[in-house]
Design a protein around this nucleic acid. Structure first.
Lengths: 299, 299
DNA sequence: TAAGGTTACGGCGATCGTAACGATC
DNA sequence: GATCGTTACGATCGCCGTAACCTTA
């Protein structure tokens, strides 16, 4: 048994049990991969893969049992490499951040630019994704840290830190009836609403609030992106329900924002990363930076 | 990085950082070990060990950080091998049981002989040890399963199963004053006592019981071994406090046993094994056998 | 016939063993 | 001088790549 055989198993999983593609990923020829797999199987004494003819079509019971351990080994192996690299120069490295549009545009700029000043040697990669995909990005090691609001509570192998709490805001054009007077859910529900797509940026809290009161809402536009919402609010299509931090009093001076914290439950934006993954020192400092930035703002 | 380098690190720990002994354990010459260590250190970019001259005298901060991951990899590696071996022939293998004298003599014979009938291909090794050592036996992989009463609750990386609950018994020669009449702690405390060594077989519960009543006891013999206690009870040195299951009405017919369940809190004998270790099927059946035997008896 | 996998064979490189040397107690 | 570790060098064994071959969609 050796580490490349272990890695091979992982890669085979990623490539739908395709030896040729696995060979490509490992930068060796396909025959070598075939041989290594057979060697490993004969060493263990029984096959790890179901075969139809010569093609791999699935894993045997043994294979499945072993894959857990394989994942553990691969993780620990890269952890060792990361720990060592971090130890060598803790100011150098890469940081892959997965997040949604709202966070990327309205929250992250400050902490990221501060972080860049402290760690000019760290290359930052931003991966924008839908909330559902964020966790997957972590699991597939395409991202080290995910920042988002929805759907992160379910998974158990994540470390979660609450970053900040925020409220929704209503945005309407100036002179819109809702720019004045008391706002209630009932009054809100009488206007066509523009807000986030399902699964995005606290959308579920909006659902909950209206449902509780037994009110139907007419969502005529659901976007992943606050800017799209604002654009159509400006065009008069309806009223916008957006995250509080997404209202910029300078740029959006033609819109009126009104706090909805008394109507819609607050949302929590969270930082998530894999429990068993090594995070370099600078990553931990980045998280600190996020938490500091979060404290400075209130939405 | 390769698996033998990872294993080398583990073995170096076990051998007090002695390269020569590590080489011996790995069945290669010492120079090869030296080279592999240097290769690994240069691959990672910084040393893992503190050196005085050429001798290894400790681990660097990096080395210490990495050892956790090393342990994980080694464990997963042997797990894979065990899983495969188990899959190949689940009726063959070895089972190392660590336990104390009392369990070995009075509890284990039945479940072990039943187990041997079902799994004649499994070689059973019994490792007798003091309760303190038992957990260590698990950690050093000298034992797969530990069975004992004391001091197993502290450690977190163990799976614990309560095997059975038992009470202490008093044993005295026939015609001894305590062979008749009501027994109280106070009355007991007036006789010289023979019982288990500290840390053994529910001894701590005895301490607790007397201390609660503010009674001093005069322990004139503390043994790891019930038979020693009985022997000296027979010689009239004092009264014996032993585990209920250690009284055998056939062999010990010259002694009178009296239940102390109303005086001394009951003890729990537990089965312990490492959380992240693969247990072969037969081991799990052995545990089942233990639990069955436990139910059949009452002490 | 293209795509995926196996088997045979030759060559190269990684790693081992021998051995001589250096250091420390 | 005994113990422990490093370095040099030759030999070996493992693993890769090329290539021919097999099988199935």
């Amino acid at each position: 048994m050796n580490l490349s055989q272990i890695e091979l198993l992982r890669i085979l999983q990623e490539t739908n049990l395709n030896l040729s593609k696995a060979a490509e990923k490992m930068h060796i020829v396909q025959s070598a991969v075939s041989r290594q797999l057979n060697l490993f199987e004969t060493e263990l004494g029984s096959p790890l893969f179901e075969r139809q003819g010569k093609k791999l079509v699935g894993m045997t019971a043994l294979g499945l049992k072993i894959m857990d351990e394989v994942a553990i080994i691969n993780r620990a192996k890269t952890n060792i490499q990361h720990i060592a690299a971090d130890f060598l120069d803790s100011n150098k490295g890469t940081l892959h951040i997965a997040t949604t549009h709202t966070q990327a545009k309205y929250f992250l700029p400050t902490p990221i630019s501060r972080f860049r000043e402290k760690y000019p040697g760290v290359s930052i990669y931003m991966v924008q994704a839908s909330p559902e995909q964020l966790i997957d990005q972590l699991h597939t090691h395409k991202a080290d840290i995910a920042i988002c609001t929805e759907r992160v509570d379910l998974v158990s192998d994540l470390v979660l830190k609450t970053c900040y709490e925020w409220h929704h805001a209503l945005v309407v054009p100036e002179n819109h009836p809702l720019s004045k007077g008391e706002i209630t859910l009932k009054r809100l529900s009488q206007f066509p609403i523009l807000t986030y797509s399902f699964g995005y940026t606290g959308r579920s809290n909006i659902e909950v609030a209206f449902k509780k009161e037994g009110l139907e809402i007419d969502i005529i536009l659901a976007a992943a992106d606050t800017d799209v919402i604002k654009t159509y609010v400006r065009l008069g299509l309806g009223v916008g329900l957006i995250a509080g931090m997404a209202y910029d009093s300078l740029v959006d001076s033609d819109l009126v924002a009104r706090d909805l914290s008394h109507l819609i439950p607050s949302s929590r934006t969270k930082i998530a990363y894999l429990k068993h993954n090594y995070l370099p020192l600078y990553s931990q400092h980045f998280i600190d930076e996020l938490l500091i930035a979060a404290k400075e703002k209130t939405y």
